[in-house]
Design a protein around this nucleic acid. Structure first.
Lengths: 206, 206
DNA sequence: CGTCGCCGAACGATCGTTCGGTCGGACTGG
DNA sequence: CCAGTCCGACCGAACGATCGTTCGGCGACG
């Protein structure tokens, strides 16, 4: 943005060309692109601490223009959560997750879940930090619980000598915790998958 | 609180006895007790989504009275974070954490960390959800990073065939994730300690 | 009689959202 | 080809609501 904090357009400095349609056809403000901007900002400062002014500035337009493209703040959150949940439930629908030995299905899900966390990092991060304040958040939390219960069922089939609910929660906790520190590009996804797999199934003591 | 949403005092309905000093000497509004109320509320709705009105209502007094005991919202957060960090660093100072074989020291810290998470649950939860928006939050995050690095050093001494930084982060993720689901009283702390210990060090496949 | 705990009312700031209007390209009929 | 019309992208300004915080006063107790 400009030094005085005002949004900046893609064309030259000092706003040489007038507003209105951008010259040529540079990237339009699609809903998906604005959701991406919003998800990134929500993760940096938190949903409540991020104002619509912040979002519109990050998108490069004014607040009122921003409302021309999106219906409101909560709609942005909902779209981001939708994307995260679609990715996670997509894993559960894969062949490797629905057939085979329980231990193999669990391993497949864990490894693929790591990959989804990486590719959909901003959206899943949002999902995992929900507090359930609004109806939208509670709906997403309910779907997330559904996902977790599927995993808990598989854990129960793999081990019956430990509390499957606790074990499943610790498992999910391990996998999901990578949103706190993993940043794309710093480490090959395959290495991350391997590290999580080994730590989860073999533990720290080889 | 009362049905019309107004704060409710300890004495009978309809506010029979007058405000001012409570009769006898029922619990005073100490800073610690208000911090406890605040931490609980912050965790339920999130720090930004929790208003001072919410906090004062939960404490049973009006917003302006609340300010008679507390200097501001951020001071409450700081006090809560202080308590959490004191608990965690206290573990690092224990004899079992400073001497002995690295693997034993690590095991001691993990088990004691679980116990601290349980006893100081609301405060540690707050600590683990920080975004770093204010100076107070960044200070707490820096101290927390200090704690994590100590653990990373021990992990590196225990295993040199895996990336110690990644392994340490997954370890912390597993331990810390219990704030998301553990609620006191539902399960003996000793059982929880045992479950975390086994999952962390032995993994899911015995 | 002073002080302490408490209160209602109000402060300025900022929030999410709405509104009226301007500008410029796309489309249309002649 | 051109005048006329339309429409979508954009903007500044303002809305009511709510935020954290402050202030002046009141009533009871030591």
């Amino acid at each position: 943005m400009t030094s005085d904090g005002r949004p900046e357009r893609g064309d030259g400095p000092g706003r040489v060309s007038r507003p209105g349609r951008r010259s040529g056809h540079t990237e339009p403000y699609t809903l998906a692109s604005l959701v991406e901007v919003a998800a990134r900002a929500f993760n940096e400062r938190g949903y409540d601490a991020t104002s619509m002014e912040d979002l519109s500035r990050a998108a490069g337009i004014t607040k009122s223009s921003f409302y021309h493209h999106v219906s409101g703040k909560e709609a942005l959150l909902r779209a981001a959560l939708d994307r995260a949940l679609d990715g996670l439930f997509g894993v559960l629908a894969e062949p490797g997750a629905v057939s085979g030995e329980p231990v193999d299905r669990l391993r497949h899900i864990v490894r693929r879940q790591v990959e989804v966390l990486v590719t959909e990092l901003p959206y899943v991060t949002l999902l995992l930090r929900l507090r359930g304040n609004t109806e939208t958040e509670r709906w997403a939390l309910a779907r997330r619980r559904e996902f977790d219960q599927t995993i808990a069922g598989l854990v129960a089939a793999v081990r019956d000598d430990v509390d499957p609910v606790v074990a499943a929660r610790l498992l999910s906790g391990t996998v999901n915790s990578l949103i706190e520190w993993y940043r794309p590009g710093r480490m090959p996804t395959a290495d991350l998958v391997e590290a999580v797999d080994r730590q989860v199934f073999e533990g720290l003591l080889r």
